[in-house]
Each structure stands twice: as C-alpha cells, then as structure tokens.
Design a protein around this nucleic acid. Sequence first.
DNA 1: AAACTGACTGTTA
DNA 2: GTAACAGCCAGTT
Length: 103
Amino acid sequence: MDNHDTFQQRIWQIIAAIPYGKVTTYGDVARLAGSPRAARQVGGVLKRLPADTTLPWYRVINRMGEISLTGNDLERQRRALLNEGIEVSPAGKIVLNSYRWQG
DNA sequence: AAACTGACTGTTA
DNA sequence: GTAACAGCCAGTT
C-alpha cells in the first residue's frame, strides 16, 4: 500500500485480502486503509463497484454484525455469505462473530 | 470550486 | 440491549 494510491485503490486491495469464509467491518477496512474515520466512505467505494467485480465485497458488514444493505441487495449479500458457510439470519444478522477478520 | 451525498461509527442517554 | 445525534470525509454533481 502506497500513500499515492487513491483511497479507493487501497480499499480494493484490503477487501481482496479478506479470507474466504470470513467477514470484516467497514470500520476495520477504513482503519487498515489508514483512515480510521472513513468507514462511511468504504461503503461509498463498494456501492460504486462494477457489477461484474470479482472483489468479495459481500464480506464487509457493519459493526453490529449485520448486513447494511436493504431489500434485494441484502438478499444477494446474504446468499453470497451463506454460500461460504457463514450463518446469516433472514434479516441480515450474522449469527456468530467468530468469522471476524482483522487483517 | 462549492455543495451535496451517504453499503458508517462513537458517544450519549 | 436500543435510539437519537453529530461528526466523518472520499466521491459525485
């Protein structure tokens, strides 16, 4: 990670490093990117990812241990997590937090 | 260049 | 445990 990388580039790199079957929070990603107060911006970056991205964007959840997306998007993310063996309630709450990754 | 927008979070009650 | 509030700051207009 270099300082001349854009914030967006650093976020991409960090998210690419989240292991299969693990999740992390917007705040943790922001901290790893060197901007501890930029959690909200992490969401902003993810929102604007291309639809065909290979980045595991769905492994990023909020600090309450739940999916921040709503409606159909919530369902898409939930399915992606379930597919990796992560238990998620229908409302989007991750059942266990032993899946947490911190880099 | 300035205003607006939030896939957020820490604090407070 | 929850809810309201106020900062937060990169990206977009």
